[in-house]
Nucleic acid binder design. Structure first.
Lengths: 143, 143
DNA sequence: GTATCTGCAAAACTTTTGCAGTACC
DNA sequence: GGTACTGCAAAAGTTTTGCAGATAC
């Protein structure tokens, strides 16, 4: 499930936005490292590691916003700290995070969709379960 | 499902903590307004509205921490902003929050517990579903 | 050429912390 | 009397914003 930097840039172009060195740099980091839990800070670090394409913090945040508007990128909150950014194509999974040690696991899809249907029926909400992680205690921390 | 300010203060006493004017003030706000979504800021405002018992921000946070340690109070995150504090006796419900307009609804218990069992079986985590809300679009915002 | 971007710097917002003095028990 | 608590002030951490100058198209 790879996506290229160009695909991300195209999404920006399609919104009528301009393609700049800073945006190329951010898109390229995301395309290369899409399987990690990227935070704004780690993207910023990676961008600034390349002196030819260094971009400011505010520019990184603005680029991430633009990519989210395009629908290709989403962010979620795994805990109290910084948000993590995912490709939307990889975001269809929810995380469970240990509130003591920070260990994360993917929430199995089984059972989830029935619960979501149930939620929709009862509340009328269109549920997006991925935006916030679920917290709990991992097997180790639960002892 | 009321709780008195005294019950909260007793919980502090039982931890060997001292009872001060600031702690009385915080406990009394929580006891009076337990049915609201209280944030640290709203508790602080309420405390400072009474010039006889005004307490500092840091004191309010420290008191809230102490009450959480006692197990009578919990906080949850309904969105990107400040945490909300609930009595633990009222916290056994999860919230769903509209990511556009901020409307909240309670997640019905039905279906939830099966999903939680499922999660525990598959991940081994002891799940606390109430700490982070679930986001989605409310019926109005979903159009 | 001009509307959009960028960097810089500062602010916003929530929460935490260090420290010297105060008050509870 | 001694430990715990408080206020103050400042910092930490993440994200946002205002603005003057630079750049893509």
């Amino acid at each position: 499930m790879h996506i290229t930097s160009e695909a991300l840039l195209d999404a920006l172009r399609n919104q009528g936005l301009r393609i700049t060195a800073a945006r190329r740099a951010v898109c390229s980091i995301i395309a290369e490292r899409h399987s990690e839990h990227l935070t704004a800070a780690s993207i910023l670090d990676a961008v600034q590691a390349n002196p030819d394409a260094a971009a400011d913090q505010s520019t990184v945040y603005r680029t991430l916003d633009a990519l989210e508007s395009s629908g290709l990128l989403v962010h979620s909150h795994l805990g109290h700290g910084a948000a993590v950014y995912h490709l939307a194509s990889e975001a269809a999974h929810q995380h469970i995070v240990c509130s003591r040690c920070g260990a994360t696991a993917a929430v199995p899809a089984g059972g989830l969709s029935e619960w979501l249907d149930d939620l929709r029926r009862h509340t009328g909400f269109e549920v997006d379960p991925t935006h916030f992680a679920v917290t709990g205690l991992c097997p180790n921390c639960a002892r």
